[in-house]
Design a protein around this nucleic acid. Structure first.
Lengths: 168, 168
DNA sequence: TATTGTTATACTCTATAACTATA
DNA sequence: TATAGTTATAGAGTATAACAATA
């Protein structure tokens, strides 16, 4: 009961450590982003991803990368647009799609938040890791991430299921 | 702008991998717990922690370990109690405190959910790690967790601040 | 007919502040 | 006076389903 079969105690320990570390880090980061840049977690991710991808993307691109529902992203994008940090326009090549672009204010906001953000991450995560520790994590975690990404078709399910039946 | 000063590209990569891994794992786990045992993330953590600590704890114990506000925990504990998975009684040694105890149904629920829970974790996290990978993570992550836990006095701030002034 | 995105809605989680009671 | 916990309430995030427009 205390150490249920299924995972070794070592695996269980590691799992708990991962979950707790991530939760603590996530929580602190959220606080910082809110206090320092008035951004939610997701809003920051959207802006950062936009900047990282050259400034523009479609809603679907963003939803796949950041959130797990389109409506959730629509909501967040609405807030970002109202704050003047992004614009949304019709995509020239596919009239159905929405072209999302970071504004100058959006870039400025990212630049404003990023240093403090990275400092939090360094203080909580990297400052007490040895070079070997970092090597280990840098080696393992990206593989873990890629593996996890490869598994589930998540987030799109709802639409496909819902379409199934449309009675009169 | 794409790789801001403050963290090395390697560190940044590792950080993103950690955040994404944790988010993907967390999201999948939440879905499973809800579908398989009608439990929220926090509710499961409360139950698991209670079981792990011999069946009983105070609200403050639980709040410190799981959530970041007492009222949040009160809410979750209320749901768990209504579902018959825990009981709340006066603590015999300190009449202010609440003694939270897992019921048989609570233990049963944990036992019901745990196998599937661990299977999700194994499939997403451990199945594609080598023994060396596991060694590395098992070595590093608990230290990371302990370090993070040692940093912030979080979650208790609200009360102390709020108490400061009580005018009129 | 399938896809993109928005809307409307409802639900859950979380936190702040005010309050009771015990220490 | 300080602590444990609850309550009331309000706010933010998320998701489901129904919908309009385009491919």
């Amino acid at each position: 009961m205390t150490s249920p079969a299924g995972l070794s105690p070592r695996e269980l320990q590691t799992y708990f450590a991962l979950v707790e570390s991530a939760a603590l880090l996530h929580h602190t980061v959220e606080q910082h982003l809110r206090a320092d840049g008035d951004l939610s977690d997701v809003q920051f991710q959207v802006l950062a991803r936009l900047v990282d991808e050259g400034g523009r993307a479609t809603m679907t691109d963003l939803a796949d990368g950041v959130v797990y529902s389109r409506s959730g992203l629509t909501h967040q994008a609405g807030l970002l647009e109202k704050a003047g940090l992004i614009t949304r326009t019709r995509h020239p090549e596919d009239q159905r799609a929405t072209l999302v672009e970071v504004t100058e204010a959006g870039r400025a906001r990212v630049d404003q938040v990023m240093p403090g953000h990275l400092e939090v991450v360094r203080r909580m995560l990297f400052d007490q890791l040895s070079a070997d520790d970092l090597d280990a994590l840098a080696d393992v975690l990206p593989r873990v991430r890629d593996h996890m990404r490869s598994l589930p078709p998540r987030s799109v399910t709802s639409r496909k299921e819902g379409r199934r039946e449309r009675a009169s």
